[in-house]
Amino acid sequence: MCCLEIKLFYRTQREMANVINKIVDEYWNNNIKEDELIQHIQTLFINNPRKIKKGDQFTTIIQQVCGKRRLEIINRILNMKK
């Protein structure tokens, strides 16, 4: 991955949202490939599920910071069969 550092565990939902934004933006800027995008998002969710979703919905902070377009992509990735 280009110059993007991704940890496995995050302390706050805001940190998580900022990392999600960076990952998706790197994908949109053609700096990472689709399979890397999918792998990173799935890994983040596996290790930090409560910081991303409460029940079936994204947390309020994730919604506010990430925005609708990014969350559509994240939702599709999280609903993929592994």
Rank of each mutant, 00 (worst) to 15 (best):
M1V: 08
M1R: 08
C2Q: 12
C3Q: 10
C3I: 15
C3F: 14
C3L: 09
L4A: 02
E5V: 15
E5L: 10
I6T: 03
I6V: 04
I6D: 01
I6M: 02
K7V: 14
L8S: 06
L8W: 08
F9D: 03
F9Y: 11
Y10R: 08
R11F: 15
R11S: 13
T12P: 06
T12F: 12
T12C: 12
R14P: 02
E15H: 08
E15P: 02
E15G: 04
E15F: 04
E15V: 06
M16I: 06
M16K: 06
A17K: 00
A17M: 02
A17W: 00
N18A: 12
V19Q: 04
V19T: 08
I20D: 00
I20P: 00
I20C: 01
I20K: 00
N21C: 09
N21G: 07
N21A: 12
I23G: 00
I23T: 01
V24I: 15
E26L: 09
W28V: 15
N29P: 13
N30S: 14
N30Q: 09
N31P: 08
I32D: 03
K33W: 08
K33N: 15
E34K: 12
D35E: 11
D35F: 08
E36K: 05
L37R: 03
I38C: 02
Q39G: 03
Q39W: 02
H40N: 07
I41S: 00
Q42H: 11
Q42G: 04
Q42D: 09
L44G: 00
L44H: 00
F45E: 01
F45N: 04
F45C: 03
I46F: 05
I46A: 05
I46C: 06
N48V: 09
N48M: 14
N48A: 10
P49D: 12
P49W: 11
R50L: 13
R50T: 07
R50W: 12
K51W: 01
K51N: 05
K51Y: 06
K53D: 04
K53N: 10
G55W: 14
G55H: 13
G55Y: 15
D56Y: 14
Q57D: 13
Q57Y: 04
F58L: 05
F58I: 06
F58H: 01
T59L: 04
T59D: 06
T60K: 12
I61G: 05
I61Y: 04
I61N: 05
I62N: 02
Q63S: 09
Q63C: 08
Q64G: 14
V65Q: 04
C66N: 03
G67W: 06
K68T: 14
R69G: 10
R69V: 10
R70Y: 04
R70W: 03
L71M: 15
E72L: 15
E72C: 12
I73L: 13
I74M: 02
I74Q: 01
I74V: 08
I74E: 01
N75R: 09
R76A: 12
I77F: 04
I77W: 01
N79M: 12
N79I: 09
N79H: 13
M80N: 14
M80V: 14
K81F: 13
K81H: 15
K82L: 09
K82A: 11
K82I: 10
